[in-house]
Design a binder for these strands. Structure first.
Lengths: 107, 107
DNA sequence: TTTTTAGTTAAGCAAATACTTAACTATTAT
DNA sequence: ATAATAGTTAAGTATTTGCTTAACTAAAAA
């Protein structure tokens, strides 16, 4: 069973704070590279490299328009992270309590 | 406002698949190092090093008993990851739908 | 056509990572 | 006391990462 980079390395992709910040930005909607880069102190190539890491794990997609490239969030691979983390969720109870109460009353 | 390593680097700590596997193991309860190391192909020092990374971000705690050291899961720092990922959760709707329905009926 | 703009790709580098083996510390057993 | 066990720490190494500047490609504007 082969594991593709896109499916295995999502955890590595979100390990970098800059890449998480980029994803956070993209929640506002798709944006061209220059606009994505603006809030960061690093060079444009650095951002471009981060974007290709995100692209490889399919956390973002690209759309060309003229000489601009719009990057758009694709959060679906984060489900992997969510699923993994949820195994530990019994340890911060609040949310589960609400859901638990609901399920108890609606079997 | 200083950011401690333990609060900032949880994402980096769980980026490594071996460390995630260790955490998964520890869900069964606390275990001594040798037992933790058993399923892995790498050396004991390698596992020991992974355990200290997990220790630094407080994802595990230590308890000494005789010459053994029992490591125990402390999943609380994962809340950080959970919180971050939840911002993207609107994209895989099922769970939120259940909770949403509940909140709608119980305002 | 020339120049500007938007962005990527290439090359290089310093620092961090994930290991290894060897040496060490502490505790228990003989 | 000596040896075995459980584990960490040290030192070294190959690889990966996150950046940089410089060179490139493609599209739009002059």
């Amino acid at each position: 069973m082969s594991r593709t980079a896109s499916s295995t390395d999502v955890f590595a992709a979100i390990a970098d704070p800059t890449r998480r910040a980029i994803l956070d930005l993209l929640r506002q909607g798709e944006q061209p590279v220059k606009q994505i880069a603006q809030p960061f102190k690093m060079s444009l190539p650095a951002i471009s490299q981060h974007l290709s890491v995100l692209c490889e794990v399919e956390l973002v997609t690209q759309r060309k328009k003229g000489r601009q490239r719009f990057y758009r969030l694709n959060p679906e691979p984060l489900k992997q992270v969510s699923d993994w983390v949820n195994h530990y969720e019994q340890f911060w109870q609040e949310k589960l309590d609400i859901l638990g109460d609901y399920l108890e009353d609606n079997p």
